[in-house]
């Protein structure tokens, strides 16, 4: 496990999470162990309430699990302070949400620059203009950079959110229902973009989705139910020659 673990970009071991709702404890995760290799594109599927979002938030350092281990690119999150987890999130994780979560007062460019500035606060380095140019080209956003989110379609907004999430070269991109608010045409474009990011930049992606078409775009599909991982299988369509 030791050598194997060192090659993993993400690993959770026996992850449990209990929420207190009123006087009742609700177990959202009941011992989840998953592992993701660098460059992998993984979809996590399952019915509502199965613990997918909780798992994503814990992996992204936004929540602390009740027990278990989470390792992101060699950094063990569960033993870290809130400030240390924030730093890991800044350096190693990019988020994409169902509701895009762009700053409505900023242009697309402003949203990207904000992410770069937050990243540079720690890194003391300048932005990577070449990577930015390539990402914008890949996501076909060159002509949309001076638009505010409300001036963009849902698909365009999600592409800006994608660009923002990967502009700082994160180890993992965590996508929470990235096509949940999009029509089928826009969904297809966003899924194509995710696939391109994975293939052209080697971007590791962990995506939560209800959408079978979205799940079908991943290399591997992890299925969850009632806080457990019930199956993990290589995407047959992808694996096929």
């Amino acid at each position: 496990m030791g050598n194997e673990s060192s090659k993993l970009i993400l690993e959770t071991v026996d992850l449990k999470m209990t929420y207190r709702v009123g006087k009742v404890d609700e177990q959202a995760l009941r011992g989840v162990s998953i592992s993701v290799s660098p460059g992998e594109y993984v979809a996590i599927v399952g019915p509502s309430g199965c613990g997918k979002s909780t798992l994503l938030h814990i992996v992204g350092g936004l929540l602390t699990p009740t027990s278990g281990l989470v390792t992101v690119d060699g950094a063990e999150l569960t033993s870290m302070s809130d400030a240390e987890r924030t730093e890991i999130r800044r350096r190693k994780i990019g988020f994409v949400f169902q509701r895009f979560n762009l700053f409505p007062t900023l242009t697309a460019e402003g949203n990207l620059k904000l992410a770069e500035r937050i990243y540079q606060k720690e890194r003391n380095g300048g932005a990577d203009p070449e990577r930015r140019r390539r990402i914008l080209g890949l996501l076909k956003l060159e002509n949309k950079m001076h638009h505010k989110p409300l001036e963009l379609s849902g698909g365009e907004q999600q592409r800006v959110a994608l660009a923002r999430a990967v502009v700082n070269r994160p180890a993992i991109l965590l996508a929470d229902e990235p096509t949940g608010n999009l029509d089928s045409e826009s969904s297809a474009i966003v899924l194509e973009m995710l696939r391109s990011l994975n293939q052209e930049f080697g971007q590791t992606i962990v995506m939560i989705t209800h959408n079978p078409e979205a799940a079908a775009s991943a290399d591997r599909i992890i299925e969850m139910r009632d806080g457990h991982v019930v199956a993990s299988r290589v995407n047959a369509r992808k694996a096929a020659p």
Partner: peptide, 10 residues
Amino acid sequence: GILKSLGASK
């Protein structure tokens, strides 16, 4: 919340 998800410190 968005700032926090982007890794903005307190």
